[in-house]
Each structure stands twice: as C-alpha cells, then as structure tokens.
Amino acid sequence: MSEFTNDVLKLRVDGVDLDVAATVRRGGALSPVVFLHGFGSTKEDYTDFLHQPAFAGHPFLAYDAPGCGETMCADLSKISIPFLADTARTVLEHVRIERFHVVGHSMGGLTALMLAHQEPDRVLSFVDIEGNLAPEDCFLSRQITTHPAEEDEDFFDGLCARARRSTEFSSALYAASVRHKVRREAVRGIFESMVDLSDHGDLLTKFLALPFPRMFMYGEQNAHLSYLPELAAHGVELAQIPRSGHWPMYANPVAMWQRIADFQHHNHT
C-alpha cells in the first residue's frame, strides 16, 4: 500500500489565513477519494480508509475543516458552509487533485454538495452520509435558534449536554469528544449557514440534478427521512446502515466501509 503523510497546508481562503491539517496518500493508479468530515468530527474518522484492502490503488485526502481538529484559522468568525466549500476547492487545488470521488458526512456532505453543484465535472461519484438536503436535517444546527444563548460557551455546553442525553446511537460518544474537536467561536457561523441553506437553498433539487453516481447513506434510526423515496425514484443508491443513527462511523463502521467499498467497486475508476 502506498505511503501516506500528515501535512500542514498553508493556504489563504477568502482573505483568511489557514494552516490545514491533512492526511494525504498520493500514490495509486485509480482516482482519488476525498473525505469531508461532519461537525464535531475530524479527518481521523476516515483514515481507516488507508488500511482497507478494498481501497488499494486509490489516492486519499482527508483534512480537518477550519474551526475543527488541528486546522488553524486566523478568523473563526468567517467560517460558514460557503467558506468550507471554498476551502475544499483551495485544498484540492493545492494538492493537485482535479477529478475525484467524494464522501461527505453531515456538514461535510453539505459542503460536498455545494462544491459538486458548482463544479460537477470534477466529481466522479458522491457518497453523502446524512448530509443536509432538507429542513428536517437540522437536528443539531437548528438548536442555534431553538436553544439560543448569548455566549458561545453556554450554547456549546448545552449542545453537548443534549447530545449526551440523546437516544441516537453513538450520540453520547460524540458528545464526549465534540468539545475537543470544534472551536466554540466557529459554531454559530456553521450552524446558521447550515440552517439557512437547508431551509432556502433548494438542496434536494441540487442533489438530484448531479450528473454522476450518488449514494445516500443513513442510519436505520433515520429511515423516516421524508425524502428517501424521492432519492430512490431518481436513481440515488440508498444505503441503510443497521444499528446506527447519524454517526455510522462510530456505531457500525464495518457496515459503513463495506457499503462505500461496494459503491466504489461499481464506479471503479
């Protein structure tokens, strides 16, 4: 298997200086696979890709989004979903990836959707792991309005406490680590833009119009999502992960990786 490196990419996005922490595997004859993590997660959610025999031959990229993990951002107030999409485009340019398969979870799925909508010719396939497509998807981000707080720290404490009490698979595990993975000052901009795009961005129409193979992955606890039949009717492959909720990479990673591998095999380039 090709070697991989942990790099710091010094970039400037929309006038903001970034030190982006990235894991990159450059070798491989097949097309690269790019992973965009969700809110409260980091690139490490996906680096097991490097040890999965099913993905041998694929270059790989995962990085910590601005405001998350080990990535440093000079102005956290500028972070939003459009800013994250611009960051993705800049990272891809920096590491010289032209065309790619993309896997995005939650916030990362929405970021990938915005990027793919703007540059569809660059994307070979898209695995969307519960990325926002409709207002109903804002179960975390809408708390910025349903549970308002004057101080960022107070809002974040409440968010973590509610996640810890949730009955969703792996939510307590998520809550235990999220405060160590996200800068408090980045939360409001991310959540407000997620809600605005989910309510007014016509995301489902954008997703259905994408001209390449798409998979929508969701935990069995979220099999009630209202738009699943419409996705299937428009040729989107549905992947329900058993014994899982919003975080299949924590609750059932074996099933998650298998479904991604099967999808990649069917779209082998």
Results as ranks from 00 to 15, higher is better:
257 W>F: 03
105 H>E: 12
264 Q>K: 08
214 R>N: 11
128 D>M: 04
92 L>W: 13
104 G>Q: 00
168 E>W: 15
238 L>P: 05
116 A>S: 10
120 P>T: 02
16 V>W: 12
7 D>E: 15
208 L>I: 09
168 E>H: 14
181 K>L: 13
132 N>G: 11
229 P>H: 04
161 A>L: 12
102 V>A: 02
147 H>F: 15
50 L>H: 01
19 D>C: 10
167 T>D: 15
258 Q>E: 14
51 H>R: 13
115 L>H: 11
94 H>V: 09
242 P>W: 11
129 I>F: 03
118 Q>G: 14
160 C>Y: 10
224 H>V: 13
261 A>N: 03
227 Y>D: 00
122 R>G: 03
172 A>Y: 10
233 A>V: 12
203 L>S: 00
4 F>K: 02
125 S>F: 05
210 L>S: 01
160 C>G: 13
88 A>I: 11
205 T>C: 07
131 G>Q: 00
41 S>N: 10
34 V>E: 11
120 P>C: 05
242 P>H: 12
20 V>R: 06
65 A>E: 10
6 N>Q: 15
204 L>C: 02
70 E>I: 08
119 E>D: 10
131 G>R: 03
143 Q>P: 08
155 F>D: 04
4 F>P: 06
111 T>M: 09
182 V>Y: 05
171 S>K: 03
195 V>S: 07
211 P>R: 00
225 L>A: 15
73 C>Y: 09
92 L>C: 11
195 V>Q: 08
248 P>G: 05
103 V>G: 02
178 V>R: 09
234 H>K: 13
214 R>Q: 11
9 L>D: 07
118 Q>V: 10
209 A>T: 05
137 D>E: 11
239 A>W: 07
86 D>E: 11
13 V>D: 05
200 H>S: 09
193 S>Q: 06
169 F>L: 14
45 D>A: 14
70 E>C: 10
60 F>H: 04
71 T>D: 07
163 A>Y: 09
184 R>V: 14
233 A>R: 15
103 V>T: 02
205 T>G: 13
97 I>G: 06
215 M>G: 07
190 I>T: 01
154 D>I: 13
51 H>I: 09
81 I>G: 00
152 D>W: 08
124 L>F: 02
8 V>G: 03
151 E>Y: 13
260 I>H: 02
120 P>S: 05
211 P>W: 02
73 C>L: 08
202 D>M: 05
254 V>R: 15
245 G>M: 04
120 P>Q: 04
146 T>H: 01
229 P>Y: 04
260 I>C: 03
155 F>L: 04
219 G>P: 08
160 C>L: 14
30 L>F: 10
80 S>K: 06
184 R>M: 13
124 L>M: 06
8 V>H: 09
1 M>V: 14
139 F>I: 14
241 I>D: 03
130 E>V: 03
199 D>S: 03
231 L>G: 08
211 P>V: 00
162 R>A: 14
103 V>S: 00
171 S>F: 10
91 V>W: 01
191 F>Q: 04
92 L>N: 09
174 Y>P: 01
206 K>Q: 11
218 Y>L: 06
137 D>F: 09
253 P>T: 01
112 A>R: 00
102 V>Y: 06
